[in-house]
Amino acid sequence: MKAPPEILAVWNKFHDFPMETLTKAWFYSRSGDKKQRTVALMKEHKAQYGITGNCFDLAIWLLDEFKRDGIEAYPIGNELGTEEAHAALIALDVHGNRYLCDLGDQWLQPVLIESTHEAYTPEKQSGFFPAADIQVMARQGEVEIVYHRPGGKQSRQTYDTTPVAEADFWQAGEFSQNHVYPKPLVEVRLPYKEETAHWEFDNWKSFLSTTEGLHLDQPLATLEEWVDRIGQKTGFDREFLLDSLNFYKQMKKESGR
């Protein structure tokens, strides 16, 4: 179910890239009409501030890297053009077999979704998603992922595997970047004991998901404390964190939530 070395080599360039909406808020408040950043601008921001971006940013950047390395890939998405949109990619090996690549949800590695491939199995697999085993249920035009989490908990997610034209994908990205949800989100893959765990900052709470279960962080009272904690997990620039978190604090104040 694992991707071949040439696909993994590109994917692994992003192994320490968090998914986050802080950049969306930060760039929204200081950009012109165009909110979806180009790959060149994303690289500049990464070099200067350590920042990465949301699922559209990561998918666009990953797609560019696949192209540069001569690997065929295309965007996919669910509910594109809405505030619930999610973006990912499918990469193809030299035989045309498809692999789901989702940096936005912080997968550990791509996974085979070609049901006719000899290596394909719908049985539970480990090592693809932080703190969960997965099952891949490939069907015509879509793939359902079943996540098996500690304590017997299950969740499901369905991806539409229909290729999205790049122009339409960029348009969906532009819509997404123009709509800042008032609750900040940061997701990071972090080493924990013998595994890679998933740390999340979501609406002013944070926690670590592991195969042992959920570890809740201590609540924090001040913006500066959040800057320190998020900075420690991500390596993001301190002034960037102050600016973006202040933006969200102001949104929360204005919305009354």
Rank of each mutant, 00 (worst) to 15 (best):
M1G: 09
L8H: 06
A9N: 14
N12I: 01
F14A: 07
Y28R: 12
S31R: 11
G32D: 04
D33Q: 13
K34C: 01
R37M: 13
K43M: 12
I51D: 08
G53V: 00
L80T: 02
L80R: 07
E83H: 10
E83N: 10
H86D: 02
A87F: 14
A87N: 00
I90G: 07
L92T: 04
V94W: 10
D102E: 09
L103F: 05
L103G: 07
Q106A: 15
W107I: 00
Q109W: 02
L112G: 10
Y120F: 15
P122W: 08
G127D: 03
F128P: 00
F128K: 06
F129Y: 15
D133V: 03
M137D: 10
G151C: 02
G151V: 01
G152D: 08
R156Y: 12
T162Y: 02
A167Y: 01
E174H: 02
N178S: 12
K183Y: 15
L185S: 11
E187L: 12
R189M: 09
K193F: 09
K193D: 13
E195I: 05
A197I: 02
K205V: 11
S206D: 13
S206M: 04
S206Q: 08
F207C: 04
P219F: 07
L220V: 03
V227D: 10
G231A: 07
G231F: 08
Q232Y: 05
F236H: 12
F236G: 08
Y248F: 15
Y248H: 03
E254R: 13
R257T: 05
